[in-house]
């Protein structure tokens, strides 16, 4: 689709969203420096959605889903990709309009493309969190998850935060009209400095990391790391540093995903591991609530 003269490159897409949300009063954060499965894991969403203080921010979060790796051979599936995350607390009354404004900003004309809010409630058992909202469709494609958080870490959100999660690669593929993620234009050429594609940047990474996730990662070490995360999380809670405890919960969650990719967790064990990750995340949230004096 080519609505404007030349569609946004991948990096222009991100910069445009940054400009747009900064103008709405959002803090523009940089990605969290740990391996996470989704932008929601960033403490700027998870922990900041707890408690009474207003909080408005936007950031890109690299997200890792080891089981989605396809060795760079599938045009749509990646084990590492980007989410664009906006969190606004309390949820503003015109959040839908603000969101639609962001689509216009990146070149999607709502009188040319069919934008729809289709029911999709969100739940993250590992974070003890849920909310109501939609997946936003653009011409039948899901481009954003739109959620009003109701609970996080087992606690009622007071007040409720609105969360927007854009799938950046998907959105960019749509805007640029390409069929493979690796063909995305990452930036524009300037002078004799050439443009690069998403494939130039990430294809080799997908190949090697898929191989590591599925074949190489040492499962004995992974099991050990998981246990280490559990003890370190507990120790951090005991020492009164819930932010550090939460980092261990995040790490445990990723190690669990790696163990899944290695296929060493049986169906029966799976539920038990998910329960253990949830305990770490909820425990950290509880400690964070208590630390701030918000727990009832």
């Amino acid at each position: 689709m080519q609505d404007s003269a030349s569609p946004l490159s991948f990096q222009q897409l991100i910069l445009t969203l940054h400009d747009y949300w900064a103008a709405q009063g959002c803090v523009i954060l940089q990605p969290f420096d740990m391996r996470v499965g989704a932008g929601t894991f960033h403490p700027a969403t998870t922990l900041r959605s707890l408690g009474p203080n207003p909080w408005n921010c936007a950031y890109v979060q690299p997200s890792r889903r080891p089981t989605d790796g396809r060795y760079g051979e599938n045009p749509n599936r990646l084990q590492h990709y980007y989410q664009y995350q906006v969190i606004m607390k309390p949820s503003p009354p015109d959040l839908q309009d603000l969101y639609l404004g962001s689509l216009k900003a990146i070149g999607i004309d709502p009188l040319l493309h069919d934008i729809r809010f289709v029911e999709d409630d969100w739940e993250s058992p590992t974070l003890g969190a849920w909310g109501l909202g939609w997946e936003v469709w653009c011409d039948g494609m899901e481009v954003t998850q739109f959620t009003y958080f109701q609970q996080m870490g087992g606690f009622d959100c007071k007040p409720v935060a609105g969360e927007l999660t854009y799938g950046l690669e998907r959105l960019a593929m749509y805007i640029q009209g390409v069929d493979s993620v690796y063909d995305l234009v990452f930036n524009e050429a300037v002078g004799n400095r050439p443009a690069v594609t998403y494939g130039d940047v990430f294809l080799e990474n997908e190949r090697q990391m898929s191989k590591w996730n599925f074949e190489v990662a040492d499962t004995d070490k992974l099991f050990r790391w998981f246990k280490d995360c559990e003890t370190e999380c507990a120790a951090s809670i005991a020492a009164g540093v819930p932010l550090a405890a939460y980092e261990q919960a995040i790490e445990a969650s990723h190690v669990f995903n790696l163990l899944q990719a290695r296929g060493v967790i049986s169906v029966q064990e799976r539920a038990s591991y998910m329960g253990r990750v949830r305990d770490l995340a909820k425990g950290s949230c509880e400690a964070w609530m208590a630390y701030n004096g918000w727990a009832e």
């Binding site: 009474p52 309390p90 949820s91 503003p92 009354p93 409630d121 909310g131 109501l132 909202g133 009003y148 109701q150 009622d156 959100c157 007071k158 007040p159 409720v160 609105g162």
Partner: peptide, 23 residues
């Protein structure tokens, strides 16, 4: 079947519930 809270009023869990924000 499922309802939610939203906005400034949701500082209290007793705030109005509706299927999505009532405008």
């Amino acid at each position: 079947p499922k309802s939610m809270r939203w906005g400034d009023a949701s500082l209290s869990t007793e705030s109005l519930r509706w299927v999505r924000p009532l405008q």
